Simulated scan of single mutants.
Amino acid sequence: MTSVRSVSVVLIDDHPVVLAGIESWYAASVDPEVRVVAKGATLAAATNGPGAEADVVILDLQLGTGVSAYAELRHLVARQRQVIVYTMQDSAQAALTCLDIGAFTYLTKAEGEEHLLQATLAAAAGVPYTPPALAGALGSDTRRERPRLAAREIEVLLEWFQSESKAMVAESLGISVRTVNTYLDRVRIKYANVGRPATTKANLVAKAVQDGLISLEEL
């Protein structure tokens, strides 16, 4: 799955027993090692101290406020964090909303240790990961044919269309080539899930023009 030797994680959940359970799962990982460097019940765990530099953020969608943590997710995505939403809420609409905002993936807590660990390693490596509940949500998505892309996904996509290489995109946007690939993979997955696969750059250009994301003059 990944060539990294160590992955750092921050946990955001308002249930201490959940935090303890997830931390024990990660503690058992060896190759690669997964380390919980910060945890807490609020966004501060991922924005202050060692959590601010963690490779992956595990975010509960309900944090005791009675309101889904979409604002917290947007805050993290805007800062280019790799966020796994890990929640009791088995809702196709919630899963699709989180993906639209820019979450790396969406897991229900019923999916347990194996999927959370694999998703964490995938997030650290920038490799897409679709657990069963999310696959079901994507399969039942009856929204309009045009996929809903997050603002950052569109930005990376358009920059790539106008650049000669992914390295140039990375330099222009101040991100890594791995992150560029992650965003482009997400875009391809979203197009595939609405029945419009785009496996090449030319395919993506054509679909972006069709969907009004870019004009021929801009190319």
Score class of each variant (00 low, 15 high):
E114L: 11
A151I: 10
L96A: 02
A94K: 07
G112S: 03
T108R: 01
E159V: 13
E159Y: 04
R143N: 13
T105E: 00
T108H: 01
N181I: 10
V83N: 00
G136W: 05
I154R: 13
D90V: 08
D100F: 00
Y86F: 01
Q162C: 12
P128G: 13
D141Q: 10
T87A: 04
T120K: 05
M168N: 14
E171Q: 15
Q93F: 07
S140G: 14
V85R: 04
P132S: 10
P147G: 13
L138S: 09
L99A: 06
R148F: 09
R152W: 05
A122K: 06
A122T: 06
Y106E: 01
E159S: 14
V127R: 12
L184R: 10
Q162K: 14
G102S: 02
A110I: 09
R146M: 12
P147K: 11
G136P: 06
Q162T: 12
A92C: 10
L184I: 14
A92K: 09
G102N: 03
L184H: 08
E145P: 12
R144G: 13
I154V: 14
V156W: 02
A133P: 08
D185P: 06
L116T: 04
D100C: 11
E155P: 06
A122D: 02
A95W: 03
N181M: 11
C98A: 11
T130M: 11
Q118P: 03
R148T: 15
Q118A: 12
L138P: 05
Y183N: 13
A135W: 01
L107M: 01
Q162L: 13
S163W: 00
L173S: 07
T182R: 15
Y129F: 09
I101Q: 04
T120G: 03
A125Q: 06
Y86I: 06
P131K: 11
T105G: 00
A151V: 12
